[in-house]
Design a protein around this nucleic acid. Structure first.
Lengths: 143, 143
DNA sequence: CTTGACCCTATAGTAGCTTCAGGGTGTGAA
DNA sequence: TTCACACCCTGAAGCTACTATAGGGTCAAG
């Protein structure tokens, strides 16, 4: 199958498929005489797997690690469990961060209920007077 | 004051200050004879404001809009309220997305409780067989 | 007169793509 | 046959919000 068809069954764009190949997540397929990429079922499975991992917000590094662990047919899946546990922990942390953020934003929003003059707007005053925090170091790759 | 001092009071790096200038968030300051940037109190206020907005995960576009609305001293603050409401909505949406994600990940994690052979690992089977979803269009800039 | 802390510009790198420029290929219709 | 049009190719640039690096200039103290 050609790249357009593969992209369609995996619900992504052609550019994304080519990008995954360059990024080393998808192995380079055979080529036709016209230099078109030619994929088989194994590629479909692999790409679906990658897209599912991405739908779960895993990074390429995580996916790469997972694919590596998969391909060691000899091993056990302890590493896989650990990787997933760590990823769940990332998601948890990001949810906690965003919840705190929402709290701050809601408080700020309370500072101005009506359309008043800009000079008197409590939101702007709040934004101007907040204690500037330390740059918060990222705990996760989730934005 | 020189750039290092400004960066210190605003809790960010010198590079970030220069970056904000290039990005059009911070106006170019006067220069000394030695071509050093020379900042005053207005710059301190502005940079603190920007850093506070960033601490609340606003994008540069949002901050830029906010600064524009502020500088129209004549206007009322309806636009400011609206901008903040929209930003809060972004955060809400992202929290909802991540919660759903966590649910999916937890279910997946349930599929494998022990160290077993990779071939039998329920997590990998889950990742392989998930219904690939539509590329989810970003509802927010929050990752 | 040298050391070290600070400043300058310009460029490249990060993640995970998307978009664009500038081509080649293959098929159906006029 | 020739045209249009959909698809394919490569390589490079763009996106966000910075961070890092190279290669230099400035200034005060010892």
């Amino acid at each position: 199958m050609k790249i357009g068809e593969l992209a369609q069954v995996a619900q992504c764009t052609v550019e994304t498929v080519r990008y995954y190949e360059k990024a080393g997540l998808l192995s380079p397929p055979a080529r036709t005489a016209a230099n078109y990429r030619s994929y088989g079922d194994a590629h479909v499975d692999r790409l679906r797997f990658i897209r599912n991992c991405r739908a779960l917000d895993m990074t390429h590094a995580e996916i790469h690690a997972l694919l590596g662990l998969m391909d060691q047919a000899a091993g056990d899946c302890g590493g896989i469990n650990q990787l997933l546990d760590e990823h769940i922990a990332h998601v948890d942390m990001r949810i906690a961060e965003l919840s705190q953020l929402k709290q701050q934003l809601s408080e700020l929003r309370q500072c101005c209920q009506s359309k008043q003059a800009v000079d008197a707007c409590g939101i702007l005053q709040g934004l101007a007077s907040m204690e500037t925090e330390q740059r918060h170091e990222r705990h996760t790759h989730l934005g």
